[in-house]
Design a protein around this nucleic acid. Structure first.
Lengths: 192, 192
DNA sequence: TAGACTATCCAGACCTGTCTGTATGGTTTA
DNA sequence: TAAACCATACAGACAGGTCTGGATAGTCTA
């Protein structure tokens, strides 16, 4: 079977395995040897697809952005059917994520902190991702409160990011409720 | 000069150097060799004071909590003279921190993410620290809006944590303004 | 249809460097 | 004298990365 470089089985296994391991144990804590062992891939194959570990990291981040986007595209409408309000649906989806097994915070926050270098390609990718993610949040806020709450979107972004990191530290999904409550009050105050 | 174990010069240099290096480059990225080299301390001396690197990490976190506490105890009243409102003073102090050279987020958030293990003593220390820090924030909120805004404190905590991680990712102190604005609106809405 | 070619892959030895932690021995100083 | 320290060599594990060799399978050509 002919495969292009970006759709090979080995490559897919590498990215998915690295994503799982990096998220669970940290990017720096997981070595190349463990990734290839759990992916069932030879070392030479890894280095045929990715010149260095940094390139694998970048591929993992891109893969995770797809997964995150897909999750919210599915979970927010699902919760909305019950919650009605888009804001309530957003934070319900967040809370569901916080409570899911294996939750260990936001992989993108984690990457920036682990990589430490502001010029690292992974760090720069995360900056781009957060812009896209917060644009998605802004759209959701618009849908919830209309143009009246234009200035609300940045606050919702801060609440979301803060809830994620607090859920990680406290090992509790409760910050989602705190953030939702604050977002609703801000929306009401803004004349939504 | 007779020194007790906890006040020796070598120990102080080790903790201060490790604190600086861990914060700048990450706990896992900084090896023992680099710490002792920059601290001007022999390896045997380090292991005489700290049985393992984990113990040094714990000492660093404790040292940093003192530093953070001291910073807010100084900076908030200083900004308050100009800002008037305690909430404004808090977020002005935060913004000053975000804009300071070498800012790389919250060392405690970073530690939890880097250590990855929820049972690591460092992770558990951070949970305790965050409780103490958020209690400090709650007291500050009480001073700002009185008992009317009792439920405001958790939201302020989420806003603060979120602003820190967003300032790190965006390399901008602007999230402090977003968080302040949201906190003020919430305080006003709560009848403060 | 047989055989050669090519791409992709697995397995694993190997390199250099760094990691945490231990051990030894000499120097300072109270 | 004895505690605290510095300097250094060492151990074993592991890091990221290179390289060789062999297996598999699809494709092209006679």
């Amino acid at each position: 079977m002919k495969r292009t470089a970006n759709t090979s089985d080995a490559r897919r296994r590498l990215v998915e395995t690295a994503d799982r391991l990096f998220y669970a144990d940290g990017i720096r804590a997981v070595g190349i040897d463990r990734v290839i062992a759990e992916a069932g891939v030879a070392k030479a194959t890894l280095y045929a697809h990715f010149p260095a570990k940094d390139d694998l990291i970048l591929a993992v981040l891109a893969h995770r952005e797809e997964a995150v986007t897909a999750y919210f595209a599915e979970a927010v409408p699902r919760h909305r059917r019950r919650a009605g309000d888009p804001l309530r649906a957003l934070f319900a989806a967040l809370k569901e994520w916080f409570a899911s097994p294996g939750f260990r915070g936001c992989a993108f926050q984690n990457a920036v902190i682990e990589l430490a270098d502001p010029a690292h390609p992974g760090t720069e990718f995360v900056r781009g991702h957060k812009q896209r993610f917060h644009a998605f949040l802004a759209e959701l806020v618009r849908a919830a409160v209309g143009p009246a709450g234009e200035g609300l979107a940045p606050a919702v972004a801060v609440l979301v990011e803060g809830a994620v990191v607090m859920a990680l530290i406290d090992r509790s999904p409760a910050p989602a409720d705190v953030a939702l409550d604050a977002a609703l009050r801000l929306a009401a105050g803004a004349g939504g």
